[in-house]
Design a binder for these strands. Structure first.
Lengths: 258, 258
DNA sequence: GGTACGGTCTGGTCCGGACCAGTTGCCAGA
DNA sequence: TCTGGCAACTGGTCCGGACCAGACCGTACC
């Protein structure tokens, strides 16, 4: 039986073999094979790339975790069909509103250098110089208050932030002025009711239901933003599609960002 | 050096050893250890539970994927900080709670055939025979009410639903009894405050903030569930990762809810 | 023709060993 | 006292083997 010639060789080195194999397989799946096509069997891959089956399985598992492949016991491993909807978009408030045909605006409440609480400092990875910009804003859509934002931004990465116009999209400002693009974010949301201060700022009755988002945004792997946004729960909705990819007993997934 | 006595023994059987170990470790992490505490080293676990290191690592990896543990090279494996969060995935309430080390239970309020409102009938794609099962339940975690569910399920796809035990996971019931697996769902969420009825059922003060989910779930492309769940906003959180084009749910804000 | 039964593919689980690579503390030498 | 280096941890990678379980197909039997 002829041994298949690998297009790339897996070598010892700083980069783990399973990661190298993942790259090879991802390329194979995307460019040479199509959706629903079977990739070579694990035992084939062992001999082709001269690695152990454990390594092959680890490589495949990371691609499964990424949604690129799926396995069927007894049949084989196949290229997953690409999802219909583009999964997620990381949109700023301004982008969000514009896409919905509403006019976004901003009421700037305050910008100042301050020492953030410990959890914020930790999330922002602040070192000795523990100061950061504190930016409080009310966001409006077509003139109506929608959300209250309390944000913290590292001073070191954003010198002179207070000298710029903070009445628009901060994300666009970061990109244009500081050449920092938000790439990923971790977001947590829960429910609250508006206290008197928040209610007043949102021009809403006390005890108005709120959707509270805490978002930590990253640029080049470094935290750039810690923001808590309180949206009027009666004026906003969050819509999401849930797929099936992580239903079963999840096995392996590598970290998304450091 | 004395060998630690395992509180539970890992045995051969239909359930894989690594899954059994995962359960043991999850229990250990949640109930005996605290946040940031180190779990025993992989080599300790090998001898304690008499399994190979590969099995130990596989067990740990699944818990890391679930966000329960995290590893630090050279230091150890630690219990992740205890966020009462649910990853944004398509999991049933029961799965969600078990994954977090909580014991899910259910208080069944009512099951009956009824004619759903027009929007529900439309979402469920009900034809002439416009009846569906109406299932109202309170979901609890460790005995405390967490959510109130009002669900509608097509009678035609689920004959005799009221004769089964509705005190557990409906998704598992659908899969086991009717061979219907939930594959995708559309979910919309907003904020509300609890009215007197809801507050009473959730054993919470009136005006407690609520996270309200409306979920329409699909099996084989056909709508199988229309459910509105009201979660105590002060006891639950939703966590999501946003990135460029990697997996993770899209979170799209829509306009005001109807 | 239909059916039951194996081979023989596939992935799933598990073992025990080996070595590499960060982390930390202890101890000897400067 | 300070510092460098070693030793003893930790997890990370990788091997090659073994057996189990699901899927498939050809064949021999009814």
């Amino acid at each position: 039986m002829p041994k298949n010639r690998p297009d790339r060789v897996i070598t010892d080195g700083p980069r783990p073999k399973h990661a190298q194999l993942s790259d090879v397989l991802a390329d194979l799946a995307v460019h040479e094979l199509g959706p629903d096509a079977a990739i070579p069997s694990e035992r084939d891959l062992m001999t082709t790339y001269d690695v152990s089956r454990a390594t092959v399985r680890k490589a495949i598992e990371s691609l499964i975790a990424d949604g690129l492949l799926h396995r069927i016991h007894g049949k084989g491993t196949f290229v997953a069909t690409p999802r219909l909807e583009s999964r997620l978009h990381l949109a700023s408030f301004s982008q969000d509103m514009r896409r919905r045909g509403l006019t976004p605006s901003t009421r700037l409440l305050s910008v100042e250098l301050d020492e953030p609480p410990a959890d914020v400092a930790k999330a922002l990875d602040l070192s000795a110089d523990g100061t950061a910009w504190r930016v409080d804003r009310v966001r409006l859509a077509d003139g109506e208050p929608i959300a209250l934002e309390n944000g913290w931004y590292p001073k070191r990465l954003l010198p002179g932030l207070d000298r710029h116009d903070l009445g628009g999209s901060l994300y666009e400002l970061f990109a244009d002025v500081y050449d920092l693009t938000i790439e990923t974010a971790e977001q947590t949301l829960w429910g609250e009711t508006a206290d008197t201060t928040t209610a007043k700022r949102l021009d809403a009755p006390v005890h108005t239901p709120l959707l509270v988002f805490r978002r930590i945004s990253y640029s080049a792997g470094r935290p750039l933003e810690y923001v808590v946004s309180r949206y009027r729960g009666d004026r906003s909705q969050l819509h999401m599609s849930l797929g099936r990819d992580d239903l079963g007993p999840s096995s392996t997934s590598e970290g998304k960002h450091p």
